[in-house]
Amino acid sequence: MTKKYNEKAWHEYELGFMVSRPGCSAEYRTGDWRSQQPQTNKEKCIKCGVCYLVCPEGAIVLAADGTYDFDLEHCKGCGICATECWTGCISMVEEGE
């Protein structure tokens, strides 16, 4: 079993304590920070992609049908997507509702 980063001895780290796994922050779940989550009324969605473009987390992903899904593992629930959506098809709802 590989040791976690906080279990290794001083000589078991990479040179200069660099991080050599690009983009590995994705392992960290910022979705836990959320108090509200976005929901899309897909019937009203015009597939424009504005929500995707303005998400600071890159947590909005293109779905097979051309609409967009939310990566709830990373979405922090800031609500920019809902505010910027052209048609108002995204709404923020309380977590757990």
């Binding site: 590995c24 994705a26 960290y28 920070w33 600071p56 890159g58 990566d71 593992e73 990373h74």
Partner: peptide
């Protein structure tokens, strides 16, 4: 720039 970064909401 991958997700999972620790920026505040709406940064």
């Amino acid at each position: 720039l991958a997700g999972g970064h620790r920026a505040c909401q709406g940064c």
